Computed example of a mutant assay.
Amino acid sequence: MKKVGITGQNGFVGSHLYNTLGLYPEKFERIHFERNFFDDQEKLDKFVEQCDVIVHLAAMNRHPDPEVIYNNNIDLVKKLTESLERTGSKAHVLFSSSSQEEKDNLYGRSKKEGRELLADWAEKAGGKFTGMVIPNVFGPFGKPNYNSFIATFCYKLTHGETPVIDNDGEVKLIYVGELVQEIINQIEGEETKKLHEVPHTSVNKVSEVLKKLENYKQLYFDNGEIPVLESKFDLNLFNTFRCYFDIKNHYPVKFTQHTDTRGAFVEVVRLGIGGQCSFSTTVPGITRGNHFHTRKIERFAVIKGKALIQLRKIDTDETLDFYLDGTEPAYVDMPIWYTHNIKNIGEEELYTIFWINEPFNLEDADTYFLEV
């Protein structure tokens, strides 16, 4: 088992890496990090001493004054390097640099010089160092107007605003889940590289990405239809888009119910994609679920009885409660990285239809059990 610490553990990439490492408790022990450790030599040294691997992600990306960005990022590297020297650490240090290294800006300079400082430490101290140069990253829970243009577009489309394209160029992208897997490969591997260029996984024009997102808004956000997802990039982009909903106010979504003398008809899900549709009955007082997914798209549709559906993002304490009643059929979709369950809170059997975008595969279930 390797003890892994992540500076910037609560940031965009850091939180995804921290949560993913938590899926493999038999392989990794996560060493807790807080931003204030950089301002407390004793706490920083204690953190460094515990780690077999340190992934240095903490950095500033944007600020009105570029010199503030440069000074902040270099200062963080120097403090980490000094702690490594004080403690005599032999940890494998992985550094997150940027494809902007070669651009003429202070952010790019701060990443390149920071990488070189840590490489010098490793050479002098006999430490292990890998400098990762990373392309543009996108994915769920990124900050709009900060982490990615995709985060900004997703937020605006789901909050009644209109995205604007500043520069319609081609962008090399990597999904945060793909980047996390690349980092884990480096953690587990024995080879180190002063300069490791992480390959991008797609190239897209900004306008093409926006067109896809606008389609997701029209079909899915406004009408509940699961769109055609032709590639892995499309699936990752769609799951990213879904995470920007105001979930508390978006769900539950009521179905359109058509009634006549014969009874009622309700369309549960309209698909541009395949998947697996299931039906269940649940006796009063019983709870199903208490698990989460990292890639699957899932819908719970209550058609008879009374149900409480609960969601909680796995690294938060806030539980979202949705009450559904079959007299007004409705659904809730499950965002990735949200553990969820459904409980029969009525006095009769609960009838639920479950749809998920891929058939269950025991060898790759993407299902992680965790109490809401």
Rank of each mutant, 00 (worst) to 15 (best):
V266K: 05
Y107I: 09
I183S: 12
P135F: 04
T367F: 09
K3F: 09
A119T: 06
K111N: 04
E102S: 13
T287H: 11
N136M: 13
T152N: 02
G8F: 12
K296T: 12
V332E: 01
L213R: 01
M132V: 05
I183C: 09
K156R: 12
G169W: 15
Y251M: 00
H293Y: 10
Y107G: 06
N249W: 00
F233M: 04
T282W: 06
S83F: 02
R86C: 08
E349R: 06
N341Q: 11
A264C: 07
Y338K: 00
T339D: 05
H258D: 14
K124I: 13
F265R: 12
F245D: 00
V302S: 08
R86W: 05
Y323V: 09
D45A: 07
S99P: 08
K143F: 02
K248Q: 03
L17T: 05
Q257S: 15
F12T: 07
K254Q: 07
V203S: 15
K27G: 11
D52I: 06
F241P: 01
S97E: 09
E190A: 13
L118E: 02
V332Y: 00
Y146I: 07
W121C: 06
D65A: 08
P227F: 06
L308R: 10
R242S: 00
N167E: 14
R295E: 04
G272Y: 06
V55C: 09
W355L: 08
S148Y: 03
V268E: 03
N215A: 13
F279E: 14
N10M: 11
C154M: 05
N215E: 11
G126V: 12
F279V: 15
S207D: 03
G224V: 00
V68C: 10
I31H: 04
H32S: 13
K254N: 08
T130G: 12
G11D: 09
D39I: 06
F300N: 01
F47T: 10
G126P: 04
K313V: 01
H56R: 07
D75E: 10
Y323G: 02
R35S: 07
V268M: 07
K254G: 04
E123M: 12
K211M: 03
L57E: 04
D45Y: 15
A122M: 08
R295D: 03
G169N: 12
G5Y: 03
G131Q: 03
F238T: 00
T158C: 02
D317A: 06
S98H: 01
F255G: 08
I297G: 02
E170H: 10
E67T: 10
P135E: 08
C51L: 12
K304V: 10
E348D: 15
N145Q: 09
I297E: 06
Y351W: 11
E82M: 14
